[in-house]
Design a protein around this nucleic acid. Structure first.
Lengths: 219, 219
DNA sequence: TCCAAAACAGGATGATCATCCTGTTTATAA
DNA sequence: TTATAAACAGGATGATCATCCTGTTTTGGA
């Protein structure tokens, strides 16, 4: 006897998403062929088509499940857990810069990578990506508001700060990817840190440092 | 008689570059087929192949001639002509935001669009794009240094400020494109403006405003 | 005038790719 | 056990695409 097959729909779907997430990040959507993905994931055309009827459906799943999760893990959760919005932002910048430096290459932010390639191509793509950006900004702005209610963080406009933090990070990653050099991330962080430093009353929240643990994906 | 042909190599090359620049901006590199470009430019396969042997050669020409020129016209020249680096940066942000708002849609920054799609795909692409980013940042940093030698702009680090300005703009355009809403540009500008305001000694250079005239392309 | 090179025309080609289709196997529920 | 649907296999298909090739026309210099 030679044939045994174990149906494992969740596992197969996960393997396809793993490979697609990686390939979209490294090569982009259009440059990733389903044939390559099938080979890399070790799945057949029938299986792929069963779980993802079209390439668009696959990309949408990558965006909604993987890219959104990467932003959540890399940015939203660390910022929420940080002692303040500013320290959270700084910690993420530094953690990502450190990871990129030891990694030796820069593949960029998966959200921005796909956003640039797909936003104008398809409305569904665009809306899914816009939602992730919105959630990212909202998390930072909410953290600033929480800081303010706790007495810290003077007159900083929360939405303004959040937009600038996300924009500076996105743009810095764009340059880091193009230059294949992560140092611009630190440069931008230093520029950001001189934005309205939290007045002069740095009380209890001030001098603490913390580490960011997660590092599996970079966003 | 029916046949007359006038050789116009420069014109034909220009028309191809016009169409390619527009299509790369709207659809991206991989999603732009040479067939579509030929049809849109009204050139034959032979003519296209004569001027640009490969698609890569065409894209490289678009990057080096068109994208670089767009950055030059939209950013470098206005900043150089501005009364100060800060006012130049502000003027460009506002000019682009105004143009996008009246235009009703956002196609993004051509440099960042191509940088995200092509930086990891090919070393020649990446280096050409990195050069443009470097020139952009250098122009802003040089302007800050000039401001400082002229007595204004206190202790701002020129390279830091330039990196943050370019990153904030690039990231803001990325979000504006994804949300199809230019307002985030203004939000980020307001955040930027609170970065180390030029000490308190705002003398002669302070309260002047100026307009940016060019607006043909957006970068 | 003549000739060589540049400029252009237009089709051929081979490769690639996303989708679809027809089967077969495995799981589930009755 | 049996029926039904889900899960998977693997090839077919038609369309698309970048490149190349052979040929013709135009241009500019000798």
């Amino acid at each position: 006897m030679r044939k045994k097959r174990t149906n494992d729909p969740e596992g197969m779907r996960r393997r396809v998403l793993d490979v697609a997430e990686d390939s979209f990040q490294a090569r982009g959507y259009h440059a990733s062929s389903l044939g390559d993905l099938m080979a890399a994931a070790g799945v057949t055309g029938g299986a792929l088509h069963h779980h993802f009827p079209t390439k668009k459906a696959l990309a949408l799943a990558v965006i909604e499940e993987r890219v959104a999760a990467a932003v959540q893990e890399t940015w939203i959760e660390p910022v929420r857990a940080a002692p303040s919005a500013r320290e959270g932002v700084r910690a993420v910048f530094e953690a990502v810069a450190a990871e990129l430096e030891q990694q030796g290459y820069v593949r960029g932010c998966p959200l921005n990578n796909l956003a640039h390639e797909l936003s104008l191509a398809d409305a569904d793509f665009r809306l899914a990506l816009a939602d992730i950006f919105a959630g990212w900004r909202l998390a930072i702005a909410d953290k600033v508001r929480a800081d303010q209610e706790a007495g810290g963080e003077g007159e900083t406009d929360p939405d303004r700060f959040a937009a600038l933090a996300v924009a500076a990070y996105s743009g810095a990653m764009s340059m880091a990817k193009t230059a294949q050099d992560a140092s611009v991330l630190r440069e931008c962080l230093e520029g950001l840190e001189s934005v309205e430093p939290p007045s002069s009353q740095n009380g209890s929240v001030a001098r603490r440092r913390r580490r960011v643990l997660r590092r599996q994906t970079i966003c």
